[in-house]
Write a protein that binds this DNA or RNA. Structure first.
Lengths: 190, 190
DNA sequence: ATGAGTGGACTGAACGCTCACTCCGCACTG
DNA sequence: CAGTGCGGAGTGAGCGTTCAGTCCACTCAT
């Protein structure tokens, strides 16, 4: 409840994100969500079929904000290395500036909801980062490995360190972020 | 319930691991655990103060098996690179051969239980991998970065890809594992 | 301009259900 | 037959979900 939400649906999504990120799906009763959103408990069910649908809608909404944040600023003509570094930096900062979104996505993809989602979709393949990496492999700048491996090498360290950052295990500085990005590129390049 | 457990405590731990890994902490009622363990519901509370204590004990038990599996076979005199590759390979295989343990640990460290644990302990610092990496940094073989970053670079891709493997997003082969380990080393080395 | 009438968005107490946990009688051992 | 370890029906707290009732913006007859 940081600023006045325009409509109730928005208020519910905003409150949910906050509470889910801090207490997990099962630690966030609808009663609490409705209280934070300043609506009646029943109102949640006017906008979402049930709690699961609310969670899915929230995922959809966050994903819709993350995707453009990633791809924005890519230059198709620029060298592969430059594009990879740029995307990594963008995603890193998106998550560091949006802790709730990060925690939510982590929880989502670790729960039955997200696992089912990933299994059914597989549409992750069209993510721009993979097109860039594939181009790098063709040009013999990047290791010629399966898409999924390149993806893991690229984002694995970032995701792990971002999590550690939010759990308080370490405190990331701009310098450290740069070092991680550079090192991740070292693991990708031929 | 694969083989006859010696005592009830063991049976409960074994059943818990199986059910937690497959259904998550909240999807695993004590009634189901007791059924799989072939004990009464009340018996669980003879061995563990409550469900949280059971989860913590299970974590303790798994951690106790993972640690030696990691450090076993390290040669203090061997080159840094060789030791790092060896540890990575060991951990990779430990998780691939113990899916339940992997899923459990992932869930544990993503839940309030594990986060509190990590925050309070910090004893991860004495893990052998870090001593090896530190030695590598001194000898100018490995990048001179904070321990936590080296740790993230080393294990981030492995953890992410292992998860993807178990969720069915990809199927890891021995060849792919080797490639990931080699690439991870590239990100660590100077 | 006014006020009675109306529809539907909203509310939150109540419902039914699930779950962690308890407790007392039972069975087995020595 | 005493004592110890165990079982599982029972308990109550807390959850997601519902629905009867409230409220208010708007219409329209007067």
């Amino acid at each position: 409840m940081t600023n006045k939400p325009i409509d109730k649906r928005e208020a519910i999504l905003q409150a949910s994100l906050e509470i889910f990120a801090e207490n997990g799906f099962h630690g966030s009763p609808t009663s609490q969500i409705s209280k934070v959103a300043n609506v009646g408990t029943g109102t949640i069910y006017r906008y979402f079929e049930n709690k699961d649908a609310l969670i899915d809608a929230l995922h959809e909404e966050i994903d819709g904000r993350l995707r453009p944040a990633m791809s924005e600023g890519i230059d198709v003509e620029a060298p592969v290395r430059e594009n990879v570094l740029r995307i990594l930096k963008r995603v890193f900062h998106f998550f560091l500036e949006n802790p709730h979104e990060f925690r939510f996505l982590e929880m989502y993809y670790n729960s039955p909801y997200g696992i089912a989602k990933v299994r059914s979709e597989k549409e992750t393949c069209e993510r721009p980062i993979l097109q860039i990496l594939r181009k790098g492999a063709e040009r013999q700048v990047v290791k010629d490995l399966p898409d999924e491996l390149l993806f893991g090498l690229c984002f694995g360290p970032m995701l792990m360190l971002t999590r550690d950052h939010f759990t308080g295990y370490l405190e990331l500085t701009e310098e450290m972020i740069q070092a991680v990005i550079a090192a991740s590129w070292d693991s990708l390049k031929l």
